[in-house]
């Protein structure tokens, strides 16, 4: 093996990688926030009394969960314009990731919803709260506490999925890494640094979620 490690070239482009990481985080943040809204609505659909709502929500989740995200990303960027929906790269990707994450988050939230004892709703009804008030003051707060651990891992895996944006040339971390790889030929260094950035960010996110979990834990 005649290859010697030399990080100098990668350090020179480190700013690019950091910018890429910032964009990755930005994409993830917007997509997951939108995904949480979609997921929450879908989750209530999944546990709804109405068969129609349950079926509709279930169909959405099943389709998304069983389709590769890369196909979805390419589909919305290259095929949707044929239907008259023309979006920029970033918008198209964020939209795709939001819809994609919505399905996974819906499953997470559903699990949390069915873990809230029915007595909680009844107690809310008994003091005269409306169904909406019960949802916002009782069920959603309890559900969120139930799901925090799996919510954390879902968010981390969605953050990693932002790497797929590289496939449509969104200049996020993976795209920048590949560019530096091709331009500098410092192959090993580039990928070590890029992976480390991902791993570090994921660990940071995990630590953040654990802190939130501790913060929100109900004292007993």
């Amino acid at each position: 093996m005649t290859y010697t490690l030399n990080f100098a070239a990668v350090w020179r482009s480190f700013d690019l990688l950091l910018q890429g990481l910032a964009l990755s985080l930005g994409l993830a943040l917007v997509a997951i926030l939108a995904g949480c809204v979609i997921g929450l609505i879908t989750a209530f659909g999944l546990v709804s009394k109405s068969v129609l709502l349950r079926k509709a929500a279930g169909l959405y989740v099943t389709i998304i969960r069983n389709t590769p995200i890369l196909v979805l990303v390419l589909f919305s960027y290259f095929a949707l314009p044929e239907l008259g929906v023309r979006l920029g790269k970033i918008e198209s990707f964020v939209l795709t990731l939001a819809i994609y994450s919505g399905a996974y988050l819906a499953e997470v939230f559903r699990g949390g919803l069915i873990a809230v004892p029915p007595g909680q709703r009844e107690a809310g009804l008994a003091i005269g709260l409306t169904e909406m008030q019960i949802r916002t003051s009782i069920i959603i707060p309890l559900m969120l506490r139930n799901v925090l651990p799996s919510l954390g891992s879902t968010m981390i895996s969605l953050f990693k999925d932002t790497s797929l944006a590289a496939a449509i040339a969104v200049p996020e971390l993976t795209f920048e890494a590949r560019k530096i790889n091709v331009e500098t030929f410092r192959v090993i260094e580039t990928w070590i640094v890029a992976s480390c950035l991902y791993v570090a960010t994921c660990s940071l996110l995990a630590a953040l979620m654990r802190a939130v979990e501790r913060r929100l834990a109900v004292p007993r």
Partner: peptide, 18 residues
């Protein structure tokens, strides 16, 4: 909901909001 508020109820399982 308004009518439910005319009565108060205590449950076997307490059902306090944890």
């Amino acid at each position: 909901a308004r009518q439910r508020a005319m009565t108060g109820m205590a449950f076997q399982q307490f059902n306090l909001f944890p």
